[in-house]
């Protein structure tokens, strides 16, 4: 039996079964929340933004044409809702200086990360991500976690394909340098204790 697609549940909602929306919310709630969190930076606000996103999406469901995936459409709503939220808060994120990255550096970082406990590593990456500008955090999440194509990402964040490519290139470097600054002292400590 093939699993029902998003389109199947959308058709059910449109025919009057509002409860079918719960399936879509359950399916996308964590990704939507993660994107909101990576944009706004704290759990309380992210929860509000993510809930607001689902309510907005529900209200606009009759205008969803199905020309793109439901997830792409939903992520575009969460991205715009988060941007509006940030604008209201008038927050400014300082940009990280980017140095060149060499292959040996990457190798030693990969090695260092293997020595760190899973939970600690997750927290560390999350903290490092918060130092990357919010729009770039979203790009990294969509590209490397959700594994969306550059074309889909450009539709979500409403910037050109080439711009997505450039921003991703920069954000990869920024994340690497931030992580390096966090991980290296821990790794050296581990080494000196041994």
């Amino acid at each position: 039996m093939t699993p029902n697609t998003d389109q199947h549940y959308i058709a059910q909602i449109r025919s009057g079964n509002a409860n079918a929306y719960a399936v879509l919310v359950s399916k996308y709630k964590d990704m939507t929340f993660t994107l909101a969190l990576r944009m706004v930076g704290n759990r309380e606000d992210a929860e509000e933004v993510a809930q607001d996103t689902f309510v907005k999406a529900y209200k606009a469901l009759d205008s969803f044409k199905g020309t793109s995936k439901f997830s792409t459409w939903l992520y575009r709503i969460v991205y715009n809702t988060s941007l509006d939220y940030i604008k209201k808060q008038k927050r400014v994120v300082l940009s990280e200086h980017i140095d060149e990255v060499n292959e040996a550096d990457i190798g030693s970082m990969q090695n260092a990360l293997t020595y760190i406990e899973e939970k600690e590593k997750k927290e560390m990456i999350e903290k490092a991500l918060l130092q990357v500008p919010e729009d770039e955090r979203v790009l990294l999440t969509l590209c490397y976690f959700e594994e969306l194509s550059l074309k889909e990402i450009s539709e979500i964040v409403n910037i050109s394909y080439d711009n997505v490519k450039i921003k991703l290139y920069r954000s990869r470097k920024k994340l690497f340098h931030i992580l390096k600054n966090v991980v290296e002292p821990i790794y050296l400590n581990h080494g000196s204790r041994k």
Binding site: D30, T34, R43, I106, G107, K122, I125, Y144, K173, F176
Partner: peptide, 16 residues
């Protein structure tokens, strides 16, 4: 290599 490293890091970060 940086692309692969970022992928590993983002997969490790996972979903909240």
């Amino acid at each position: 290599k940086l692309d692969q490293f970022t992928k590993e890091v983002m997969q490790d970060a996972g979903l909240q």
